[in-house]
Design a protein around this nucleic acid. Structure first.
Lengths: 214, 214
DNA sequence: CGTACTTTTGAATCGCATCAAATCTGGTGG
DNA sequence: CCACCAGATTTGATGCGATTCAAAAGTACG
């Protein structure tokens, strides 16, 4: 673990998935590099900071008494364990699944910013609402049986007007859709052949014809 | 649609999945009964209220230009479209999938309560955080391939110390796990035979032996 | 120019969905 | 209290679609 002190804390991708952060908060933030396997926090510990992943992957896990390990959240970009702000103890472990770059915000400062800065507060509520909307849509998508249905659901719920531009590799997209990457490639090929969608690089849009997949 | 005016607005299941609501808000609330198929709001309309489902099922859907309909959220108990508070227009339709009882809170009052009542504000943030945590755990669960793995994940993430008490029928639970009810029944039976879990009515707990399912 | 990763296609297998049907359950009304 | 009904629970048989294992071709990057 290697941490750079405050220095030049540019806002992490403003305008995108992150709420705008007030000066007070960014000034108190620390950028930390975690090696794969390193722990951000441990279950039972008292939350002292809020974390935001910039690169790599951090996982929240819980290990049962019988030894089974369960993944509660995988984060590659954005805040994690937002609920820890309300909790007196962590209810899970956080581990870097691969080398990760993370913003660390002292929880005291974070809480004070929320109380004192109405704009930030609104931004945080908006952030939570947006993430919740996305997660719920994702859940609905994952309950769809067929690969084709999931792809179309993704396009219609995450895209604009039937057009999506992927921000990730297809392999990663397959994982997000809960499919093997082979299944996704085959499904995309089949949908294109059927004329349901058209694929151009990372841009995918659904065509005029064809109502819904069986 | 049949709406009772303010009258005796008990708090919807306080202590459970709902945040505590201030007097000002409950006083302005309306209880509404929707028939199956009735619409709570329409895409493009300006949000004027926040809704909370008490009974029945309300769905948020979006219909694409090519006619495909996509479910973004199904709600049987709790708030829906929390992000509509931030939006100037609805981005989806809300329809009662079956006869539903709903609380309606004027958005103006809701916003003012959030601004003026610090306790309610904290409660709302906590509510959003909790729901987000649950939704994300649900997503992770649904990406698990095998039925057994999903059941165990549910027990370990939603249960207390390896024990869960279901609040719904198994058929409904199966739907939540993204399984057919037959698959769930068979999986439960298999897990019990294997000695991995023990089932007693609506209470399920995992036993000592057996590490993880293959 | 080599290495690591993604993309793509093939073939075999298996788990879950699906269709069917019987039993059990709680709740209703006579 | 019992007959009765709607829904949940359970078990069986079958087929499909996605996973899995394999391997080749394409691509990015140092």
């Amino acid at each position: 673990m290697k941490s750079d002190s405050p220095a030049a804390p540019r806002q992490p991708g403003s305008g995108s998935a992150f709420p705008a952060l007030p000066e007070t908060l960014t000034a108190a933030a620390t950028r930390i590099e975690f090696d794969a396997g390193e722990r951000l926090f441990r279950i039972g510990a008292k939350p002292a900071a809020m974390f935001c992943v910039l690169a790599g992957e951090v996982r929240l896990t819980r290990t049962s008494s019988t030894g089974g390990e369960v993944i509660l959240q995988r984060t590659r970009h954005g805040f994690l364990a937002e609920a820890s702000m309300e909790a007196s103890r962590y209810h899970c472990d956080a581990v870097a699944a691969e080398p990760a770059t993370v913003w660390r915000f002292p929880l005291v400062t974070f809480r004070r910013s929320l109380e004192e800065d109405a704009t930030f507060r609104a931004g945080w509520v908006a952030h939570l609402s947006r993430e919740l909307r996305r997660a719920r849509a994702q859940c609905e998508r994952l309950t769809l049986r067929s690969a084709a249905a999931r792809v179309l659901h993704f396009i219609e719920s995450e895209g604009r007007n039937g057009v999506v531009t992927l921000t990730q590799s297809r392999k990663a997209w397959a994982a997000e859709l809960g499919l093997s990457h082979e299944a996704l490639y085959r499904t995309l090929a089949a949908l294109e052949t059927a004329g349901t969608i058209s694929v151009q690089g990372k841009t995918i849009c659904q065509s005029r014809r064809s109502g819904r997949p069986p």
